[in-house]
Design a protein around this nucleic acid. Sequence first.
DNA 1: TCGCTCAATGTTAGCGCTAACATGGAGCAG
DNA 2: CTGCTCCATGTTAGCGCTAACATTGAGCGA
Lengths: 336, 336
Amino acid sequence: MSSDLTESGTGPTGAAPTLSEVAKRAGVSSITVSRVVRMPDLVAPETRARVERAMRDLGYVPNLVAGALASARTNSVGVLVPTIANSIFADTVQGLSDKLEPLGFSVILAQSRYDAVREDRVLAALLSRRPEAIIMVGSPATEEGSRLLRNARIPIVETWDLPANPIDAVAGFDNYKAGVAVAKHLVAQGRRQLAFIGGDDPRGTRRWFGFRDEALASGLSEPRRLILDRKDSGSVAAHARLQDVDAVFAANDAHAIGFMSGLRKAGLLRDGPASAQPVAVIGLGDLEMGQLISPTLSTISVHGDAIGRTAATLTLERGGERRIDLGFELVLRNSG
Amino acid sequence: MSSDLTESGTGPTGAAPTLSEVAKRAGVSSITVSRVVRMPDLVAPETRARVERAMRDLGYVPNLVAGALASARTNSVGVLVPTIANSIFADTVQGLSDKLEPLGFSVILAQSRYDAVREDRVLAALLSRRPEAIIMVGSPATEEGSRLLRNARIPIVETWDLPANPIDAVAGFDNYKAGVAVAKHLVAQGRRQLAFIGGDDPRGTRRWFGFRDEALASGLSEPRRLILDRKDSGSVAAHARLQDVDAVFAANDAHAIGFMSGLRKAGLLRDGPASAQPVAVIGLGDLEMGQLISPTLSTISVHGDAIGRTAATLTLERGGERRIDLGFELVLRNSG
DNA sequence: TCGCTCAATGTTAGCGCTAACATGGAGCAG
DNA sequence: CTGCTCCATGTTAGCGCTAACATTGAGCGA
């Protein structure tokens, strides 16, 4: 099939072929090859065929690094999450990646691991790759990070929260209201001794404030707050430290399920409905797992992938509404 | 503090400052600025201080796109996973990212969604960004993808399996043996009617073969194989289609937990030990969740993050062993 | 003092591509 | 046949940086 196997089937001898090598082989100028790659409609069919043939023969793979430098467009977006493993943020990354990939954008992924120093470092690393936008979970932890983002003069989307003074765009939900909604529900159910378990990251803390404020407003005493390590396993033991409590709001489903596991060991978990639970448990995130366990987990449902898709959209269009509240739902099942 | 606030506090007026603008302001040549950024030890302390000052004043952020073109080093690796959400691959991405980030490498993340066409497309997109290595879960689905990778002449690490003819390096475990191990265990437990539930992706299929072969070798009849959709929820209903079975190997923990949920509805789940279960269930992946539910989930434990870290290592060092079997463990708990 | 080394800095060229602006015809109205 | 438009293709310059190779001068042993 190929007229020159030396450079095709057997693979290139040395460096990757360049645009101009393709051009030479096809007997056209480099810009014509560039057009075949990016705007094929502008090239005459026969020329195009000749160029495409040359590209195939040489195994040409465009060099987007060079293209990006020349055109000042990298077709990439930086994505910063606290962590990607065992986490609902993976849904968000999936959502935005699904939206961005078909448009030719690549995702540069970085994790802060809930560490402000690392966050600033990866933010700088991200920006030095000149992404066309940054999508992050939450807001920068430091003033320095914030400054970096503002100076970058690209769309910035903060997600998973609704910050009062966003840098640019926002796609999230009101974590405070989520805490309020859970407290309201538990109070209505007649629970009196509330507790909150979770991390002390900004979003978790906002949930706690909403939860506490609503409990106090309902005349309950201040709920207990147990700040757990990032490892779920800690929540199994949490029950020991929360003896007299009759309702728990866990900042995420993993904590909730861990806590339920502790309750089970203590004989405080029923397979019956919420009203039968000695201790009500509400999670947040609506992991699929929550529906599969027994008792099924009541939870605040948040659409992580919708957050990702919305963030991607905000990245692409500069006009329009820049603050999108995707809300949440209190999904009541059997745990509380 | 700054002698020129016009270009600092208020943010740059137009384009991002370049190396040579910093150089001009510091009264040195561009290469000296470049050295301050990359090899500060080669620059005299006073000069360095002057340059650093100029960088701060201008809010200089190095342009790695230009740097990459000039030096032919992008300091990035491409990572291709089937999916990142709700998946154990997230652990692998976390692991490799944790290893690579401190070394100045960025992760370009792409998902194939178990779709061969999309895989080839994102592979080409990845390669056009000239990553210094590609780490992928599994092996290319098509000959074309394979060819692309081979021609790229960069380290390629295939993970989560031990392919017979790898492109380059491998960090994974033997999925066939995992299936064998599970079947052996179930047979030893006296189970007679085995079944397998899971997807029909390459790795799942290899587990199935190992499982089936061992069952047959033990004199059992051929196990049933239920190919499920990628959505766990399907596995809840799976029990209906697997009536006469007394042991199930689920290709991943999510499927296993879903199946157990179906068993529970059918009254076929006990809180007691494995020997008390009417139907044994073994998963794969060792999600933390498996220890938190009741009965606790027996599973094949695979260290997703170790796979990621090992893959990252294989990416950095070209010499040494290129095929690393990270093994697996059969973790026995109460489900089977 | 010469001639050497070495530390600090500079000069030059070019990475592979694209934006912006030519160029050369073909087609066609008047 | 002029002059215009428009399609297909080409030329030129340069994106922001770094590799490779100077250059300069200080320090120093013989």
